[in-house]
Amino acid sequence: MNPDLLALITTLKMAALTTVILLLIGTPLAWFLANMQSRFKVIIEAIVALPLVLPPTVLGFYLLIAFSPQYLPGQLWQQATGQQLAFSFSAIVIGSVLYSMPFVVQPLQKAFEQLGKPLLEAGAMLGASPMDRFFTIVLPITKASFITAASLGFAHTVGEFGVILMIGGNIPGETRVLSIALFDHVEAFDYAKAHILAISLLSGSMVLLASIYLLNRPSKNRLRTK
């Protein structure tokens, strides 16, 4: 298979899996933060937001150490799966989840805070359980924020470079993603192939962002009624 096509498949696989995991972890975390009133809230918020300001290589460096068989996380992983965590597909997914976390948690937290309690109280008074309220009130009303969160998480994961290089290396079909393939082409002075990948990433990102704005635009019917 064409190595660049393989890199594209690896990238999409990694980004899709990361996005799903991020939505599953990020939603309850964002809900918890939106409703938390403790003074420790700022500490958790700071930890979640850390990847926004931290150089990816710093996060990658510490993850590389943690994933190595000499340290507990790496050891536990090896005992559970029989395989080394560092330089594996699983490693780059875990790294991506941590690195893209703020892009998913922050829009969701903001949406949950804006939604507030009034409509949920109304739902409770009509006999809706907490899960029922989440799926029939929270989710439909904050749908736009979920789309934004998922898209940003996906796009940011696709564009990752530093963290993946540190903890995944450059193993074709396993950890070699598009951004690393692009770097390889530039290092080898193969600018033609580099251009193809760069343009693909650029246009892909543009299409994705335009789609988010299109989806999040109020519908024509709603506009007419206001």
């Binding site: 009034p118 739902g123 008074m125 009303i141």
Partner: peptide, 11 residues
């Protein structure tokens, strides 16, 4: 409970 601000579901 009927609230002061109706609290109808906007969606």
């Amino acid at each position: 409970l009927v609230f002061q601000d109706s609290r109808l579901f906007p969606h």
